[in-house]
Amino acid sequence: MIANLDALLEASVRTATPLALAALGETVVERAGVINIGLEGIILAGAFGALVGASAGAVGGIAAGVLAGVATAAVFAAFALGARADQIIVGTAVTLLATGITGTVYRTAYGATGAALTIPTVAPLPIPVLSDIPLVGRALFAQPAFTYAAYLLVPALWWFLYRTHMGLALRAVGEAPEAARTVGIRERRLRLGAVLFGGMLGGASGASLVLAQSGTFAEGMSAGRGFIAIAIVVLGRWHPVGVGLAAVLFGVASALQFFFQAMGWQLPYQLFLLLPYALTLVLLGVRRGRGAAPAALGQA
């Protein structure tokens, strides 16, 4: 039982990591008043970038993943911010674009199955002392570097959003762009910066899927994580701490399937697959979301 619980916790944190990275990036994006549902495509591009870059080692994989994420976010920015086109439509198109391009290039370069294609995953980095804490130590502190990056991002983003001038300006843009403009805030530049930052973290999220989890790429391997990350931002009420916690909650809901399997429960596994999505819906319904949303969210 204890061993199972330990495994559950470990799996929760592992599952939560890519979600947290993507959702924290999207938090900044949405705080600037932009909703980017192209995040799904950004994660996918990041995963594919990591696959390509991994031939130059893990660092190359991360760099290429982040770069691919930023490039995909730049496409979104060009249309949604540059041309002021509708953000939902552009986001949908960006996801389709990433799906089409990564799928086509992958099959062209690696064949239809790509079965032989495995790349070494980055090993967990146990943190001395902390990883020896009973019960939670290994689950929290014997994870790959991506997880620690997510840990550090939570306080860093909190500090940025609530303790810096730029963070204040960013939130002002998300709440009242007109008012922000009148006091000399460069609205478009901030939004662009936010979207590219979101692309960076989305790319890192995709890279973590390849480099820290599966060790390979599969078509459409983002598997809805970008959409889940956007729901996590709402659940976490657009606040880094809340978003971090919501990501963990989602990780637990996803990891429960391993737990129940280990406990020998006989239930169709599809029930567990749908649990996280159903839970998100229930939680969104229980918590009133819109009150905390940036007032100018989604407006061109």
Partner: peptide, 24 residues
């Protein structure tokens, strides 16, 4: 209508729920 949940998010979640329900 009742809870102010953005339909963009809820409909996407419901897509996944429906897919896995068909699986069940």
């Amino acid at each position: 209508r009742r809870r102010g949940v953005l339909e963009v998010i809820s409909t996407i979640m419901l897509n996944f729920v429906a897919l896995h329900l068909v699986g069940v």
